[in-house]
Amino acid sequence: MKDPNYFITGLKTKNEKVILEIYQKVFPNIKHFVLQNKGQQADAEDVFQKALLQIMTRVAVKSFEINSSFEAYLFVACKNLWRRELNKRKRLVTNDTFKEQGSEARELASSILEQERWEFFQEKLEEVSGNCKEILKRFFNKMPYKKIAEELDYNSESVVRQRVFKCKNKLTETIKKDVRFKELKEL
């Protein structure tokens, strides 16, 4: 694994060879993901370019640093941008009063704040126990209690219901206790 700063510096200096290396390493995965999820080649290209700009804007404005591998981080950023795009399209279709789309720069700026908020929530989920994490992930992805009981080997739905109740309270507390929750709350 290469030091993430190798790629960050490459982007900062607009080193096209390094940028090409990023494409060779990560783009095929993103393309695969987008094509599997209602997207086209052009969507994959768009999301990929935006994710790189998103990362570099955070580096420039917020002294952001990547602590994991650059490739893995970029992949998550792309996935989220694509999810955002799909949700945006859904809102445009279902809601006529949805506010007019901002400029490209504004959209990207908003997506950065949303990505930060998303990262904060993921970080908090990592802080609850492994058992709670597994149950909550399923709960938030709308898996029926019965199915959760089967997958995680609980005796009954009502036991799952209780666990969800406890775990969710624990998670809510952890989130609310963190100062960043209020700082970012304007969203």
């Binding site: 999810r83 955002r84 949700n87 945006k88 929530f121 993921q122 992805n141 304007e186 969203l187």
Partner: peptide, 12 residues
């Protein structure tokens, strides 16, 4: 944030 399909938008 925890659902794999939804997204939370920033308004202003």
């Amino acid at each position: 944030h925890y659902n794999e399909e939804d997204w939370s938008f920033a308004d202003k």
